[in-house]
Amino acid sequence: MSKKEYSFYPGCSSQKGASASNYQVSVDSMCDVLDIKLNEIPDWNCCSASIGYAGGGVLPRLALSARNMALSEQAHGDQDIVATCAACWLATRETKERLLHDEALMKDTNEALAAGGLKVEAKQNVRHMVEVLIEDFGYDGLAKNVKKPLDGIKIAGYVGCQTNRPFGIAGESFENPKYLDKLIETMGAEPVENYDKKVSCCGGALIFSEPEKSHALIKDIIEAAYDGGADMIVTPCPVCQLNVEAYQDQINAKYKTKFNMPVVYYSQLMSVAYGKSGKEAGLDGQVIAARKLEEIAGK
């Protein structure tokens, strides 16, 4: 299979030293095996995620994503834009849809971009990395590269919100998407059946401003994973990953629970299954060590 190239939008959290830097490490490893070349959009900016609204209005917010698209068009206009972060993907895709849907908005946006010497057409596909995997490789294609099946690991596929709604992955439902379970299976692990909190919200960005309320949601998410007999949780979203993994201490303190549930990215599962080392899979970036993955990676 020839090399596949995409115009890559890594997003702030994937930068070195940022909260999802280990995600990026594993994505690179995974792409290496799949022969994917990610061409970073030059000088990309933050998408403002879903929390930029208070300060920014509609147009300034859309302009942020439009700028990224404009830069992508300039640099690799013939490639699909791919994001690994759910919020980055959502913001960019939403901007694309709204611009294409509304001529006036397109005009206004371009007027704003012109102030920075840019211009956008918004014609490129905007895709999440998961879509690339499922649609461009397929489960069978992904399975081919498995060197170390993840035997004996039971995993709760936590899809969360923003890779799922409002756009979601083609062919999947909002309430019970199956792709993550299928990916888990493809890597040789066992998905938790009917994982109740699969698409429940973790509080998202409100973890910062409303920690208590968010912790209550996260507690349910982890609890349901334990109920399903999970060894770990896997997710496609950096916000989900951070929220569900990093606050377990605080949740334990408040709710007298004893959570110690590893939360990993799909790309980490894949890197390990594809024979990469624990470091290459970003496992050293876990706050709660994913022992079972480490074991397989170490073999």
């Binding site: 929390i51 919100c161 923003q162 799922n164 709604r165 409002p166 919200c201 998202g204 960005a205 968010s214």
Partner: peptide, 8 residues
């Protein structure tokens, strides 16, 4: 929380 459940 921008979970988009309402929109969906």
């Amino acid at each position: 929380t921008s979970c988009y459940n309402c929109i969906a």
